[in-house]
Design a protein around this nucleic acid. Structure first.
Length: 485
DNA sequence: TTGGGG
């Protein structure tokens, strides 16, 4: 025999501040479960100093997760529900767009005019249900103390029916940015597809996200002398993703690496990749000339449907881009300013570096628009070596475009063509500086060199070094390209 | 008693 009160519509719950209520809502947004800031019961300055030692002992940290919910009676503003638990695993793991949450005995609170619900781990309980597309009345996750009541089934079905005609969308925001418009250190919202979640190590995760646009090119400032000992990395991550994984990714548009700060077991939220999501209040930074995103403790997620207006717009923009003749060219590339190199392979189609990396054949020829972000050796006088009286070029360039970085070698006759023979060292230095975007006189021995490499067109050939390991020994070299004087 | 808020 149950003594539980009925589920209260959100519109009524708002007026029941300090009351325990039962709610059923659609989850429109959530924060990843994380450690709470603590109970802060010794926060008063007097008590804090008086119980200085006790302070650290008594402070209680729980795990917390914030859901935002709506129902058919109330949509704006979305109602926050703060859920606390002793363990991470006891917090809700929202799996799908528009999933439902049943909350029992949560307390309505008000602060600064905002009404929200608080889940008390001593007496509240929750259950998560699939969203509108489902007829399943069994929850996919329940907290302790939750007990299923058959009279709730009708309300779950009712809410799902209401959802069929309700546009549960990404929500517009003034902070929404595409990857092409991001700025370091600024907070922004991003609508993107989560392509992959990688466990770098225990509690260290990297999300690979994509929105079909290109992150802006960055200036670099590294010691060029370091290129031998500590070369510019090819990826943000310290490992190389297997080619099979790369092949599942889109070939055009930047795949931004996003790292979580202060979260654990993030992978549980992205069991199925290829979800479209809106991240709210994320940030980005630059490392080794590569962009990366940061999920902050106060970042939020909205799981989106594939029919969401914003998602449709992203996909349409991408489809338009790749079907255009210039679809493979970086978004920030302006052909009117590309006059550093010329190539003599008119009929080779443009490809992104990601297309080159994932190309089905080991050996092939490509044409790309890239930036030369590093050279090894670095000094122009070492660009060629002497061997038994013969002079020959051998340089390893690091090329990047919005999709990837690769090493590409310049050898022998290709080097002759590239530099127009063996010009005097000062001429060669000037050529190098133009290629790497180094401002004249900007090189200081032993110090970081600021450079902003221009987009250059070049022909790239893939080859292998060992016949018994073609893919493993695959390399790239530049050919058919000339630096313009 | 822990949140949020760009």
């Amino acid at each position: 025999m149950s003594h539980r009160a009925d589920i209260v519509p959100l519109r009524e719950a708002i007026d029941l501040v300090d009351h325990k209520v039962n709610l059923l809502g659609v989850i429109v947004e959530f924060g990843f479960p994380r450690k709470s800031m603590g109970t802060g019961i010794w926060d008063s300055p007097f008590l804090s100093s008086f119980f200085n030692r006790l302070h650290q002992v008594v402070q209680v940290f729980n795990y917390v997760c914030v859901l935002k919910i709506v129902d058919d009676s109330h949509q704006k503003p979305e109602i926050s529900v703060n859920i606390f638990a002793k363990n991470l695993d006891e917090l809700p793991r929202v799996l799908g767009h528009g999933d439902l949450v049943h909350l029992s005995r949560v307390v309505m609170k008000v602060c600064d005019g905002e009404v929200f619900a608080v889940f008390n781990k001593m007496f509240s309980s929750f259950a998560l249900f699939q969203g509108k597309a489902s007829n399943n009345l069994n929850p996919y996750q329940v907290s302790s103390r939750f007990c299923h009541e058959y009279q709730d089934d009708m309300l779950i079905s009712h809410l799902r029916a209401w959802l069929l005609n309700f546009q549960l969308d990404a929500g517009s925001s003034e902070y929404l940015r595409s990857l092409k418009d991001i700025e370091a250190g600024k907070f922004f919202d991003l609508i993107c597809k989560v392509l992959y979640v990688y466990e770098a190590s225990k509690d260290e995760w990297i999300l690979f996200v994509w929105d079909g646009t290109d992150t802006p090119p960055l200036s670099l400032e590294t010691k060029l002398e370091d290129e031998v000992e500590k070369p510019l990395p090819l990826n943000f991550e310290s490992f190389t993703l297997p080619r099979e994984t790369l092949c599942t990714f889109p070939r055009v548009g930047t795949i931004l690496r996003v790292v979580p700060r202060a979260y654990e077991k993030l992978e549980l939220h992205f069991k199925d990749s290829n979800h479209w999501v809106k991240f709210r209040n994320i940030s980005c930074q630059v490392c080794s000339g590569l962009w990366y995103g940061i999920l902050m403790p106060n970042s939020k997620v909205r799981l989106l449907s594939n029919e969401d207006d914003f998602v449709i717009k992203c996909r349409r923009n991408y489809d338009d881009r790749v079907s255009a003749k210039v679809g493979r060219l970086p978004l920030s590339f302006n052909p009117h300013y590309c006059c550093v190199t010329v190539t003599d392979n008119e009929n080779l189609p443009y490809m992104t570096l990601m297309e080159i990396l994932t190309y089905s054949e080991v050996t092939a020829k490509f044409k790309s628009v890239v930036r030369v972000v590093a050279a090894c050796p670095w000094r122009a006088e070492r660009f060629f070596r002497s061997r038994v009286g013969m002079r020959s070029h051998k340089i390893r360039f690091t090329l990047e475009d919005p999709t990837a970085r690769i090493h590409a070698y310049l050898f022998a006759e290709d080097g002759m063509e590239f530099f127009e023979g063996f010009p005097p060292i000062d001429v060669l230095t000037n050529k190098r500086n133009r290629l790497l975007g180094i401002i004249e006189g900007g090189t200081c021995k032993g110090e970081n060199v600021l450079r902003n490499p221009p987009w250059v067109e070049c022909c790239i050939k893939s080859y292998y070094k060992h016949k018994n390991d073609c893919w493993g020994s695959r390399r790239f070299r530049i050919f058919g390209t000339r630096l313009v004087s």
